[in-house]
Amino acid sequence: MPGTMKAIVIPRFGGPDVFELREVPVEAVGPRQVRVRVHATAVNPLDYQIRRGDYVDYVPLPAIIGHDISGVVEEIGSDVDEFAVGDEVYYTPKIFGGPGSYAEQHVADVEYVGRKPQNISHLEAASLTLVGGTVWEAFVERAQLKVGETILIHGGAGGVGTIAMQIAKAIGARVITTARARDHEFVRSLGADEAIDFTTEDYVEAVARLTDGEGVNVVFDTIGGDALTRSPLALAAFGRVVSLVDLAQPQNLIEAWGKNAAYHFVFTRQNRGKLDSLTRLVERGLVKPVIGATLPLARMAEAHELLENGTARGLRGKVVIDVRGETVDLPTTR
């Protein structure tokens, strides 16, 4: 090393068919960097947003994308003493900052790298980094969710929702989530106190019913659409809305004014401390990874199609990629 590695490359923006499995050079390791053998990665909405061209100004082509890594340190830079060869690590590569995780090898600044929780596999660890870091940023650093507060988490059965519910429970909040009826038992098993079937009941009315008209202290918006305009209708006075969603259309905030509300927009930022806190929750068993499907690196296009059509395919939790092995595990139709 450095030699070459297999990687999934996008030569142009477009549908899942743009992916190409290529043999590419491995980057050299700088003094404050480590080279990691990638055992597993995962697929996020951010990945298909980049792939289809939502961030053309930030991603020069051809590009290796991907935002989750769990793997083993194979080489350390001359000024690295935090890690040794053989250490198991997990992290999100710097977003819009060079090659991503859809590859056999990854070179990262040590500041981005965290020790992997000991009680979970690489596939499980890879499912957590971007989602876990984002939820941590959203709940702990931005909305400052507190014990005893009530939170509405949209999409509890999804890749973000499954982790969001567990972290909210670990904080000591009462969790209300939206999910299809077929997923209610599942979301309750992850800590949801109440589940709203959004296909049969409007969530604003349901929240009013479940909170005696008071509303929730925090709304976690992962759905977009008119959620920013409508969320204050479900909020208690002085409530907060945290959103991960990039909005195409203008939104009206008049309802937010009536609630003295705050909106926090989270476009994940990174520091190692954040993942180390998540690691402690995982090792104490308070946050369990939820994997809905596993595919090998060569089947990345299928992984993207699955995530983009997750509801129709009955997907629960994350789509992960077995980079070292050839695991195939797909959701059964519910």
Binding site: A256, K259, V266
Partner: peptide, 24 residues
């Protein structure tokens, strides 16, 4: 906040928006 606003810059900058209504 009695107006429609394009909030997309808030996403890419990761901003927090506080809508202050002191009469509550």
């Amino acid at each position: 906040s009695q107006y429609d606003a394009d909030l997309s810059p808030m996403h890419t900058k990761g901003l927090s928006l506080h809508v202050v209504f002191m009469l509550i």
